[in-house]
Amino acid sequence: MQMDWIWGLIGGMLIGTGGAVFLLANGRIMGASGIIGGVIDGSGRHNLSERLTFLAGVALLPLLLTPVFGPEQTHLTGDLATLLVAGLLVGIGTRFANGCTSGHGVCGISRLSLRGIVATVFYIGAGGITVVLFRHILGVI
């Protein structure tokens, strides 16, 4: 358990360092939903290659680390309806809110942005209520 926390801290610092590089070098905010969303809805056409190389890095590094540390278990549900509904909610929600855990959470809170803090309170609150409702009351996840 405590080992997980230490890896959490190490991984977290790598995430923050990635955000710092993207900000200080490229002048951009490292928000996963914004970077992906701009590719999907065409709003990021002017810097498409920067978005795609960023996403390539996100996908490729875990693949390169797998031989060293072994494949991470995702424990993702196999229930098709849950996957579809959850994916739609995450896609629509992050684009409406203009940010997710990385954009509002990491990049927003670290500059004490009111929007980032409020967004984080709402998505953690909604996530907590959802887990309690669907796991403990309805017993479906």
């Binding site: 996403l55 995450v90 997710c100 709402f122 996530g127």
Partner: peptide
């Protein structure tokens, strides 16, 4: 948009335990 969007996002995040960054990071496994 901020309040509604973050609430919907949180619901999906809670249901599956995934958000946009990790879904790309775990593409290979």
């Amino acid at each position: 948009n901020l309040v509604l969007g973050s609430t919907l996002f949180g619901m999906g995040w809670g249901l599956a335990g995934l958000c946009p960054g990790p879904v790309v990071a775990s593409l290979s496994y």
